[in-house]
Design a protein around this nucleic acid. Structure first.
Lengths: 198, 198
DNA sequence: CCGAATATGTGAACACTGTCAACATTTATG
DNA sequence: CATAAATGTTGACAGTGTTCACATATTCGG
């Protein structure tokens, strides 16, 4: 019943939650330690009991964003219901992952930007499950189902990642060229990738 | 012979030059008005006689970076010497542009990041010649030379841009997945794009 | 169960930043 | 030439990350 306990109890988790909330609405570069502390009713220096610096906090947020992205990809992959053969299903899963990548970026632009914001502090060692591994696994599934030739096993992941990552950046960074309206860039790029790796 | 003339004379140009220099070595987010003024031997508020705010300065730097990129693309395009027919030459030019995009990013990572750093201040209206128009023109050249079907006229530019832009970001943002060494990602992606739009 | 070690939070400071208002000086203009 | 405009300076303000000394709560060995 005490109004203000001296100790918060779970400041670290609360900081991460609040930081993620803030980033989603205002972007990661607008994230401020003092703002964070203010919204949690805590003094600014309290943050330093849980994070050595703002950059470390940002790095953790970035890592959480990458995990959200990877989760979204896995979810999209598993949502594919295909009655066809393994060959067809592997392609449908692959394209679902690609679409989900871009959709995640457009639906959570600030989070996506935060996920790949370069930070001086290196991310934690164990950064799985990563979006990259989801992609690589999907490519491998296509290879074994003979949807794509085995000779593309090495190239396909980077080709696919470059395509969806580039489109995601273009769509979210507000650098779309003037005068070029486009109906469904996502379809164009995803099917383009499929052709590129076939 | 006076040591310190009260008026600098060409502060705006000097500011742009110094800012571009600084960005190339330290990145655009480390750019500081006070640092800039210090290196030019000028008071911080002098900057405000030429730029309404730091964001406007950053926006101008970003624009200059985009122009540098576009110049590099045009140069690479024009450096292609092809004795073959127009068809073959158009493809070679297109791939040269794609390679130059990624090479520019890897050789000037900070400049590339600055070029597409999102800024609140919208860029100036006349933003030509842009990398995008170079790409679109190249695609059109391939269409008229019948190197690619006309039906791909609409899709090809965004497919190509997404591919090279994505690879450029991946290579420069230090987000390359651990354990995946790769010989020539650029070749893989550029030739992949060519297949995708054929 | 108690006292000490440890974990966690506070308050006041420091250097730094972008920005602005008032003032100074140089240049341009009628 | 006088006056207006352009350009630079000084000093301030609020806000930031960070640190240090201190306060309080929790945990743990005896």
């Amino acid at each position: 019943m005490s109004e203000k306990p001296y100790h918060h109890g779970a400041l670290e988790a609360a900081l991460m939650d609040a930081a993620l909330d803030f980033v989603q609405t205002s972007g990661i570069e607008a994230l401020t330690l003092r703002d964070l502390a203010r919204t949690l009713g805590v003094s600014p220096s309290a943050v330093y009991r849980h994070f050595p610096s703002r950059d470390h906090l940002v790095s953790r947020v970035s890592q959480a964003a990458r995990e959200s992205l990877a989760d979204a990809l896995l979810e999209a992959r598993n949502a594919v219901i295909s009655n066809g053969r393994a060959k067809r299903r592997s392609v449908e899963r692959f394209e679902a992952i690609g679409r989900a990548y871009v959709v995640f970026a457009t639906q959570h632009p600030s989070l996506f930007a935060a996920a790949f914001a370069l930070c001086d502090v290196p991310p934690a060692a164990e950064d799985n499950p990563s979006a990259w591994s989801v992609l690589v696994d999907s490519v491998e599934e296509m290879v074994v189902s003979q949807a794509i030739p085995a000779s593309r096993r090495a190239d396909a992941p980077i080709i696919a990642w470059a395509g969806v990552h580039g489109l995601a950046n273009i769509l979210t960074a507000s650098i779309w060229p003037k005068g070029y309206a486009f109906d469904n860039e996502i379809d164009a790029v995803v099917t383009g990738i499929s052709r590129a790796i076939s």
